[in-house]
Every structure is written in structure tokens, then in C-alpha cells.
Design a protein around this nucleic acid. Structure first.
Lengths: 355, 355
DNA sequence: TTGTACGCGTTATCAG
DNA sequence: CTGATAACGCGTACAA
């Protein structure tokens, strides 16, 4: 009914190439036990033996079978990253670099990185499969929400994870995040410094935690500057260029027209900038614009650039995330680690003194 | 020296939640054998038993331990994708969607997708680790080169793989690709149809297979149109915006100035368009431009758009790649499968009649 | 310092 | 149709 594993291996002609612990120890005239211990850095092996073993293993290209090892040790030696891909969502322009950073760090530990995309509603099923199947020792949760069912799930399950982004309540788990509230406030302060007193704002959906935080920062800085909040100039919309475009049209129709716009994400940012160009608004003179994560330098007219709040270290973020997750896995009782990186303001021709 | 696996599991408090095959069969009053067979769709189980087992398994949320299963069956139930990330390389704008497509297809088979980025020179080591460790049953090779050491390695090892892209010689292995030569030719023909007779070309590094093919298509179509090749108007450069920018500057300095430019990749494309804008060249009138994979609609001036050769089906490409790899894994003796998708021409304001 | 013997959780063989 | 029993390849108490 089914071919035996051994036969399958013969047929593919592949596993024949690979060397066994049994074969390796036979070649060395040692027991598997000794060889295994030598390879795994146990102290109770004579230096000479260890040397010989290492040499031979290297020479024969021995790689322990990962399934067997995992079974014996009860660990998966792998972590997962589940990212919710909504239609057209490349919202985090640096995501691939984060993945690369993680990948590098994990490779150094001989661990695998499983990637599972999931349409957002099916996501919990994906987690379930990963955890219950013992496929991973821990997971990274990306794109956190203010109320995040995935994180609740992981916490009640007691499963090791690190969040890439915070949630509404996040005191008691490990996360890595950029200080979105500071970023939002920073943008406002830059604009206030230039004399703007009527600052509009385009925001991503507020169930996304980063968006809620940036909004909070925006409001706080306004208040600190003694400026009123103009409700109709604070637009919560979708996470897309089109949404940004439409939001900007609304803002331009207001009277009096705001003198500056803070956009909390780069997708909307592109749309906003396009709308302004279409309306022949002179960016940086008629209206100032700051966009979180920036927009591609090509979006604007020649010689112009968009001021941005930036999170410059995607690659390092990936390494750090991996580090944190390893720690959560290996020291489950250690207190949670929480890393907050500061975004930086990068100026551009899109900001200027209030008209 | 090391905690026993069981203790570790107790300590993390996690695996306690998960249910065992042993426990499951105990609950059912059946042998592990029978339960296993019922779950794996063997025919020699009574319908009633199968029903009971399925029900109970569902109820208790049983998930087979993947390490044990892999060990027993001698398969990894996982595939890998290794993509070389050079500095700033997001060359394939659709890569994430390809990954998503693969991920979906593999999830349906209960297989994992391992992602391993690798600085290009260390790539072979990465492969080695994946293959020898029995971590994967097969791999996807992305970003193929004309002479591709990775593919040579896999072929001599006899390891199942599918290439995402072809190589110089690719008769005897499975690959999925878009018809880059046709795409290159298509671009030229569109331009010729509009009366252009002096067509320049900006190309990515020619060791990348797609770039070599697009170049070939470009040259073939020129020749078919009876047009000469102007050597100084065929620029091979890097894979970046900056490279494209500089290439365009060179082309603008030529005399006579070419009336059209074909750019074989979207990164260079952005740079080229920017250079033209900077030089106040009216795109679509003074010079026509076609860019492979297109450029973001925001790169140009308002109301304009860049004509493109597009590969519209990234998600489907991912599914197909996964399908093909599954087939290579499961039917190693079947003849290689080779899938060539046609790109399509998408017009835009960046092309117009020759001046 | 080394070797023996067993367990990890599942699937496959073979006899009922 | 079902159930003992033996792998799968490695890690590790325990004994020597």
C-alpha cells in the first residue's frame, strides 16, 4: 500500500549520500553514545576522542537527522513566523529584511525558520497546527492589534512567543517595537516648531496597534502644544494608497484648510502625496507633510522629498527578535523582555514654515 | 547536565496540553495501530471505527507529533526556499506573494515551508545544512543564474528541486518561469510599431538568467525589425535605482539621442524614469519608456503611467511551484515538468509615437 | 572516560 | 478488519 521508508530512500537515491550516527561511530570504532556526546559538547569525553570525532564528522559531512534529534530531545529546533497577508499588504516595507535578520540569527543556532502566511481569519488554525504538531518551539507574532486574539491564544496556551509590536495591554509578555507614540508626537512637534497650528492627520485602522499609538502620540503632542483637536481633520481610514488619496481630498475640502498633514503609514502617505500633486498643491509651502516610514523618493516631483519618521534598523530588528525568542524558549521563567526602539525624524522638502 | 525532555515539557507547561496517539487510542479502547491507520486513510479499517476515531481525534484536538512522524516515514514533510538577498534586493516585487502561494498549497498537504535567506556566497552551505539534515524533502531555487552552482549541486546530489527561473542549460530539470525573451521582444515590437527605430536598453547584470533572456529577446526583435544594434545604447548595469539613474544619464548624452528605452527590471526602471524627469524630458513624447515589471504608479508625474511588461500571477506562480515540487518529490522518476508563462504588455502614457 | 539499554511518538510489517 | 511488534536515528540515565 505504501512503500517502506527504506525503499523510498533507495529510490530517490538521496539519503544514501548522507551519513548515519551509527555508520560514523562504526568508522571510528566507538559507540554511538560517545560520538554523540563528543559532538554535543559534553565534558566527559577525552580531548583526543573529541578531536578525532570532530575531524571524521567534518570529513564525512555528518549531519544529525533532525527529525530523530527533535524526537529525542523533545524540541523542534524551529520557530515560526506567521504574518497576516491581506490583499496587497506589503504594509511593512522592511518585512523581508526583518525575516533575513531572524534567519541569520537562527541559522547560527541550527534552527529553522518556518514561514506561514495566513489569510487573517484562518490565522488561529495555522497557529494551532504549528503548536500542537510540535513543529516549532516558539513563534513571532507580527502586525499586532490592540486586542489581539492570537496573543491571547498563545498566552493562555503558555506557548513561547515574542510579539513584533505591542498590544493594548502588554505588560507581561516579550515584545519588540518601535516607539510609535513618540514618533507621532515627534512629527507634530516638528510641525509646531515651524509655526503650524492647524495640523491634520491620516490614520490607518485603529485596531492595528501601531496606528492607535501613533494617533495617541499625535493627540498628546497637540495637547502639549496647547492646540485644539479638530475632529474633522483627523481621518481614520484604510491601509492603502487609495484610502490615503481620498483622505487627502477630504482634507483639502476643509475650510479653513489645514496647513500640515501627518500620515501614519507609508501606503496612505503615497496616496496623500499624489492627491496633493493632483490638486496642484505645493507641498512644503502650501501644505507640509510628514509620513511615517516615508514614501519612495520617486513619489514626489523632481528634487523634492518627503519628511519622514523612520525605523531604520529592520535587519537588526530581525536579529533582536530572534534573540528574544530564543531567550523566551530557553528561559521560560525569566521575566519578559521588552525592547523599544526610537524612530528618527528625517527631514525633507515636504515641510516648511506655516503659510 | 541537561534536563530530560519530559522535564522540559513539564516545565514549559506546554506539551501537557497536547494529546498523544497512545492516549487517544487508550480513550478509544483501540490499538495505536488501528487509530493511526484510521487517521491516515487506510482502507482496511471499518467505516464505523474510522468515524469514531475521526470524531474523537477532532474533539481532543489531536495533532500527530511531526518529528515522530517524520522519523517513522523517512520524510521531512517540509520544503525549503532559499533566496539570495543581496544588499537592498527586493528585485522581485512579487516575491512575498509567491511565498504566500506556496505556503497555501503546502499547508493543504500539511507540509512546512522553511525560508532561509543567505548572503549569496554562503548559500551552498545553507543548502547543505537543509539537505543533509533531512530537514526538507525538496527545495525551490529562486533567482536563477545563467551558470548556477546551486543547481549543479542539487542535480549531482540527486535532490528534488524546482527552479524558479531557468538557467543556461535547463533541459533536464523542472522549472517554472516567465518567458523573458518573449517579454523583451514584445517591448521592442510595441516600440517599433510606434515608429521607433533607435531603441536603447538598460539591462541588469547578465549572469542573472532573466536579464540574459530579456536581452536576447530585445536583440532578436531588433534584428527581426531590420534595425541595427547600437552598442553604446545597450547598457548592462547593476540592479538598483541608482544604476538605472546613471544609465539613463548616459543614454541622454548620446547623439543622436535614442527615442525609446527598454528597461529590463523595475528597480532600474525607477531610476531611469527619475533621471528623465530630472532632465525635463517629456516621457512618452520626447522619449518612450517600457519597464519590465513596471514601476509604481507614483513614480511619474500626475496622470502619467509607465508602460510595462508584466507577470501578473505571482500568487498562482507560488501555487504552481509548490505543485511542481510536490510532484518531483513524489514521483522522482517522472520526466521534468517545465512551465513557461507569458508576460503581458500593459500600455501607459510613457509610450508614444517616435518624434 | 566509555559502552549498554531504553525511550521519544509514529508508521509499517506481519500474523491473527 | 484488528493488534502485537519492530523499526526510524538520536539522546541520555545508568552501569562499567
Amino acid at each position: 500500500m505504501r512503500q517502506s521508508p527504506r525503499f523510498l530512500q533507495m529510490q530517490t537515491g538521496w539519503n544514501a549520500v548522507s551519513i548515519d550516527l551509527k555508520q560514523l561511530s562504526a568508522r571510528l570504532g566507538l559507540s554511538q553514545t560517545t560520538v554523540s556526546r563528543a559532538l554535543n559538547g559534553y565534558t566527559d569525553v577525552s580531548a583526543k576522542t573529541r578531536e578525532r570525532v570532530a575531524q571524521m564528522a567534518q570529513e564525512l559531512g555528518y549531519q544529525p537527522n533532525s527529525a530523530a534529534r527533535r524526537l529525542a530531545r523533545g524540541q523542534a529546533d524551529a520557530v515560526g513566523i506567521v504574518y497576516p497577508l491581506e490583499a496587497g499588504d506589503l504594509g511593512d516595507p522592511n518585512f523581508l529584511f526583518v525575516v533575513e535578520g531572524m534567519s541569520e540569527r537562527l541559522e547560527a543556532e541550527d534552527m529553522d525558520l518556518l514561514i506561514a502566511s495566513a489569510r487573517s481569519h484562518a490565522e488561529l488554525r495555522t497557529y494551532d497546527r504549528l503548536l500542537r504538531g510540535g513543529r516549532v518551539d516558539g513563534v513571532i507574532v507580527a502586525r499586532t492589534q490592540v486586542e489581539d486574539a492570537r496573543i491571547d491564544y498563545l498566552r493562555t496556551a503558555g506557548f513561547p512567543f515574542v510579539a513584533y509590536g505591542r498590544t493594548g495591554r502588554c505588560d507581561d509578555f516579550s515584545w519588540f517595537d518601535f516607539d510609535n507614540e513618540a514618533g507621532g508626537a515627534m512629527a507634530v512637534r516638528e510641525l509646531v516648531r515651524l509655526g503650524h497650528r492647524d495640523i491634520a492627520c491620516v490614520l490607518a485602522p485603529q485596531h492595528l496597534n501601531f496606528a492607535a499609538q501613533r494617533r495617541a502620540g499625535f493627540l498628546r503632542a497637540l495637547s502639549e502644544a496647547g492646540l485644539p483637536v479638530r475632529a474633522e481633520a483627523v481621518i481614520e481610514t484604510g491601509l492603502s494608497r487609495r484610502a490615503g488619496y481620498e483622505a487627502a481630498q477630504c482634507l483639502l475640502a476643509l475650510s479653513p484648510r489645514p496647513t500640515a498633514i501627518f500620515v501614519d503609514d507609508n501606503l496612505c502617505g503615497i496616496g496623500v502625496v499624489r492627491a496633493l500633486l493632483d490638486q496642484r498643491v505645493e507641498i512644503g509651502r502650501d501644505i507640509s507633510v510628514i509620513v511615517y516610514d516615508g514614501v519612495p523618493p520617486d513619489t514626489l516631483l523632481v528634487g523634492q522629498s518627503v519628511a519622514a519618521i523612520e525605523q531604520p534598523t529592520a535587519h537588526e530588528a530581525g536579529r533582536t527578535l530572534a534573540d528574544m525568542l530564543l531567550r523566551v524558549i530557553r528561559q521560560p521563567d525569566a521575566p519578559p523582555q521588552q525592547v523599544l526602539r526610537q524612530p528618527v525624524f528625517v527631514g525633507g522638502s515636504s515641510v516648511g514654515p506655516a503659510p
